[in-house]
């Protein structure tokens, strides 16, 4: 299980981004995981609940967008969805295909809280945040 190592890589990036933006905490982290990326969404989720402990990501939520395998046939140009271990053209049966999608391992976006500028314009609203982290 290498998902813990992947998770630590992810969180290092997220924390760097939080510091760069002067944020107080991270609310949501959205990642895109392809079926051929070598990362299991369930295991990543479990690793995340352990790895997130720390200043910025203590209360963060992980959103995983999974992406299926899609291929384009080099022989006939047809595009179709495919199983991760059966990358064959559904039109001509060819096996020389290019992967169009499915190997993604992307940090898509981060929802940051308590960025100074935003905080200044919304001072009255701040008291309610149970999940804000100071």
């Amino acid at each position: 299980m290498h998902e813990m190592a992947v998770c630590n890589e992810l969180l290092a990036q997220v924390r760097a981004s939080a510091v760069q933006h002067g944020a107080r905490s991270v609310a949501t982290i959205t990642v895109r995981i392809g079926a051929l990326s070598g990362v299991e969404p369930d295991l990543l989720e479990r690793a995340f609940t352990i790895a997130r402990a720390g200043d910025y990501t203590d209360q963060a939520r992980l959103v995983i967008e999974t992406i299926g395998v899609r291929i384009r046939c080099r022989a006939c140009g047809n595009e179709n969805d495919a199983a991760a271990n059966r990358l064959l053209c559904s039109a001509c049966g060819g096996y020389t295909v290019d992967l169009v999608g499915g190997d993604e391992l992307l940090l898509a976006s981060i929802e940051l809280q308590g960025i100074p500028d935003a905080e200044r314009s919304n001072q009255g609203e701040n008291a309610q945040g149970e999940n804000s982290y100071v």
């Binding site: 990036q13 391992l105 940090l107 929802e111 935003a118 701040n126």
Partner: peptide, 17 residues
Amino acid sequence: PADTHTVEVLKGLMSSN
């Protein structure tokens, strides 16, 4: 909370490695 701000990253998740 009103002070949230979404940052688009779209970077490889393994960028440090």
